[in-house]
Design a protein around this nucleic acid. Sequence first.
DNA 1: TGCACCGCATGCGCATTCTGGTGGTCGAAG
DNA 2: CTTCGACCACCAGAATGCGCATGCGGTGCA
Lengths: 226, 226
Amino acid sequence: MRILVVEDEVDLARTLHTGLTAEGYSVDLSHDGRQGLWMARTGEYALIVLDLMLPGLNGYKVCAQLRREGIATPILILTAKDGDWDQAEALDTGADDYLVKPFSYLVLVARLRALVRRAAAVAPPVLAVGDLSLDVAARVCRRAGTRVDLTPREFAVLELLARRAGQAVSKADLLYHAWPDEAEDPNLVEARVSALRKKVDAAFRRRSLQTVRGIGYRLVDDRERD
Amino acid sequence: MRILVVEDEVDLARTLHTGLTAEGYSVDLSHDGRQGLWMARTGEYALIVLDLMLPGLNGYKVCAQLRREGIATPILILTAKDGDWDQAEALDTGADDYLVKPFSYLVLVARLRALVRRAAAVAPPVLAVGDLSLDVAARVCRRAGTRVDLTPREFAVLELLARRAGQAVSKADLLYHAWPDEAEDPNLVEARVSALRKKVDAAFRRRSLQTVRGIGYRLVDDRERD
DNA sequence: TGCACCGCATGCGCATTCTGGTGGTCGAAG
DNA sequence: CTTCGACCACCAGAATGCGCATGCGGTGCA
């Protein structure tokens, strides 16, 4: 169970890291909003603990942006501020819970567990778009029940498209999520999508991976006629 | 029938040891939370008696961690505290029963027997994936009924893979669970898996230990056709 | 002291990915 | 409707890095 902690105060970050690790979670740390956003985008976290006051990009914005991208990972906001406005604002941008500093460690862990449990009860373990399914845990892709072998990069690309099924996903976003470092060449994406189409579309006489000219790609249920 | 008692009060620990041994159980003692967790992880116990107040790592955490790792050994919590919060919290982390000190020895034994009986009725004593079976208590591995000798490390690796059958398990996870300390070299895992494949796959012309490139490995029932 | 097990290092083989290029397609403007 | 430019699909060869296997030596246990 992997948790992302985005917190710039070094002491608190370290405390959380130690404590949560002892609780048995795998903890990734980010001290900066922009990097936190980038890490959260992968969608691999069971939970995100997010400070509001951050260098780079503040917590509100990180939160709002993630929701806008369709990433539903539960978010627990930490903040030194208090007051109704603050809280309303945070929950409004899509956070799931809210904790004002200083807080009891036990309370944090309890809330955090509750969030994880609630999310696990809701979130389906497989991403499905029409008869195309991605089992993210097992790293298995199926079309109409038959297995399709994908390479790691192919899987990462298809995963993001599936998480935002029906929406156009820019090549920049795909590069961001599915490539390491600072890859920028759109042809990288085009080449992977080309390979994907062969495996998940052409082999089944389907057309679920659509090009959105000037933007990127979109994954749809192509059996729906519109 | 082997029982693990994690209790730091020396007198009580000794009493339990003597009493339970007289009842015909094999009793292992740990006086410390972290060591207790490590011993419990082997999954070889029919029951764990766990004090809440412990040095090293408290009982809640030990309990929660074990459940998180998929270890379903029944846990009986002992505590000097009382109050609803305490109890709710304990059962919430996955304990099966709860006893407040001071307690009657007869009551302890009765509850303990009930737990063992209930667990024996529910939990299968062996992990099975297809015709590959792991008897965690006896540390015995079988393929299609014939015994396969595994080294301790091999067993630990295969055990985690079996507990998460069908899912991709990262090398980092395998290192964390099956190696002591802070091992990090992925080649350690690769080498063990290589040995495992010889014993449980190649020797039987099977392919149940699959590589998930870029991630780690996956244990499947390879007789299923896809 | 002998043996089994495991850490560590190495080299090989190969799947995967990148690169650059060519030809095709789309859509807007004339 | 035609033309033009931009954008995209796809290919083939090259490069990269991952995973596999293996041997050696250390270590701990009997």
